[in-house]
């Protein structure tokens, strides 16, 4: 018996809670790190804890020109990013790759953005600022892990949308998960008859 909710041709379900709770837990760690960084940048706390490089090094990073490129400190952007991460990581059921592809794809965009910004900031620490910040590196690692290990779910949703499009369904309603209502009828009319197979009979 196949595990319920597998995308066609997949050996695991990328939307399963077993997968997603890992990313949600990582996002909580990232949120704490970003909130702590923001507190230092907004002078709510005087100095950051940094067991490896020292508070002065962290200060140089969190008060660098790069951290002030936006109208607000970049730690605040991190807080916003991880909050989006938590929201869009939680939305939808365990088969959301097809019941709510929009949620899976927005989550994919959020984690891609966080991952790329984190990579850029890590490179900036070593090359432009030339100081390091432990908490910032923890946040960057968390973003990298969520992106690298979580982006696969987008493939299941994109494959689903691609199949829906090829079968002449509305991409928009597939994206919103509405076409699930017509799922059984789609099976009857478009899939089985053209291959000359008998229609499956459910529940009778």
């Amino acid at each position: 018996m196949r595990e319920a909710g597998l995308p066609p041709g997949w050996s695991y379900n990328p939307s399963a809670w077993k997968e997603r709770r890992v990313f949600l837990a990582l996002a909580v760690i990232g949120l704490l790190a970003a909130a702590y960084t923001s507190a230092a940048q907004l002078s709510i706390i005087p100095a950051m804890w940094d067991p490896i490089f020292g508070s002065a090094s962290s200060y140089a990073v969190t008060h660098s020109a790069i951290s002030r490129l936006l109208p607000f400190p970049d730690g605040v952007l991190g807080v916003f990013g991880y909050l989006c991460d938590l929201i869009f990581g939680s939305l939808g059921d365990r088969e959301r790759w097809r019941t709510a592809p929009w949620a899976a794809l927005i989550f994919a965009l959020v984690i891609t953005g966080l991952g790329i910004v984190s990579l850029a900031l890590t490179i900036a620490q070593g090359t432009i600022i030339r100081h390091w910040c432990s908490v910032c590196l923890v946040s960057a690692l968390v973003s990298t892990l969520i992106f690298g290990l979580g982006i696969g779910e987008a493939l299941a949703s994109l494959q689903y949308l691609s199949r829906a499009h090829a079968r002449g369904r509305s991409l928009w309603s597939a994206l919103l998960g509405r076409s699930e209502q017509q799922r059984a009828e789609d099976v009857d009319f478009s899939r089985f008859t053209e291959k000359g197979q008998r229609l499956p009979t459910y529940g009778s």
Partner: peptide, 9 residues
């Protein structure tokens, strides 16, 4: 089509 979740609406 044969996925266990493919119950008719």
């Amino acid at each position: 089509a044969l996925a266990p979740d493919a119950q008719p609406a």
